[in-house]
């Protein structure tokens, strides 16, 4: 990254008297902006559509129908009972992730005119995108609950863990988005590459198929590898989808080691993303 590394001893300029000491405190002071940006995102999304926010509910239903029909052709032998619930428990978190990443990665560049004119903590832009999508995700979860009730399946006793899993995913997504939105400022190829990467990622994550399609033991160059386990270790989204499914579909408490490993990954990614963002955000107004 190209940074003008001169003897920068300038004091970050505040807009208000009580200058907070840390970045997070600045962010907290701009929480009204964050709230209004989320509101802007949500309102603008459905403003001129006839069905408005109902789309947040209709969209997952439509996807459910499409994938259910396709999967009956795809996995004739591997019959998953109550497939719509199985699918939605993976697809909804995945959509939350992928839409956030695609929108968030472009959030700094797309709001360049603002960044060039007014000072505000720049991270509110990507974070607002993620939160707006989180709100959508929560609405879509209502559809999933409705489907669970419709199929007459019992709610798992571990469902109270769901908010924690959502929180972990949100932290993970914010971290990724902070990193990518910074990268996009300097390399406009990021978004183009991301298109492909997200598509590949989607197929590599057990969203519409069970992870059991991967072999437990697979010989590569004389070494036996547990591909199933490898998918979970290398792909935090696979772990997250698995956790959602444990809670919503299998009615299982989910494994503790899984839980801890994914949490740690999410926090590390978040910390790195934020650090990377903070390191470069002062130069955004020169680059966008």
């Amino acid at each position: 990254m190209h940074q003008t590394q001169a003897q920068t001893n300038a004091v970050r300029l505040p807009v208000f008297v009580d200058r907070p000491r840390t970045r997070l405190a600045t962010l907290w002071r701009y929480r009204t902006l964050l709230y209004n940006l989320v509101l802007r995102d949500l309102k603008a999304r459905y403003k001129n559509s006839a069905l408005g926010f109902l789309w947040s509910l209709l969209n997952p239903l439509a996807m459910m129908v499409i994938f259910t029909v396709i999967s009956t052709f795809l996995f004739r032998d591997n019959n998953v009972p109550n497939y719509p619930i199985f699918l939605l428990a993976g697809l909804l978190p995945w959509n939350f992730f992928s839409v956030s990443v695609m929108g968030g990665a472009n959030s700094i560049v797309a709001n360049g005119y603002l960044i060039n004119k007014v000072y505000f903590p720049r991270e509110v832009l990507p974070i607002a995108t993620v939160i707006a999508n989180l709100v959508n995700f929560l609405l879509a979860l209502l559809v999933l609950f409705a489907v669970i009730i419709f199929f007459g399946m019992p709610f798992s006793p571990w469902i109270w863990l769901l908010p924690v899993v959502i929180l972990i995913q949100t932290i993970f997504t914010v971290g990724i988005v902070l990193f990518l939105s910074t990268l996009q400022v300097y390399y406009r190829d990021t978004l183009l590459i991301l298109d492909v990467v997200i598509l590949a990622w989607f197929f590599l994550t057990p969203v519409f198929y069970p992870a059991s399609v991967f072999p437990q033991a697979f010989e590569v160059a004389g070494v036996t590898v547990n591909i199933q386990r490898l998918v979970y270790i290398l792909n935090p989204m696979a772990s997250l989808v698995n956790m959602y499914r444990d809670l919503l579909y299998w009615g299982y408490r989910t494994d503790l080691d899984f839980f801890l490993r994914t949490s740690v990954t999410a926090i590390v990614i978040f910390a790195f993303g934020y650090w990377f963002f903070a390191r470069h955000s002062d130069d955004f107004s020169e680059e966008v």
Binding site: T4, A6, Q7, T8, N9, A10, V11, R12, L13, P14, V15, F16, V17, R19, I115, N116, K117, V118, Y119, D282, D283, S285, E286
Partner: peptide
Amino acid sequence: TGVLQPTTGEIHTNAR
């Protein structure tokens, strides 16, 4: 206004 950061030099302010 803080939109750009100075390459060198300092700005101190406690004003809205």
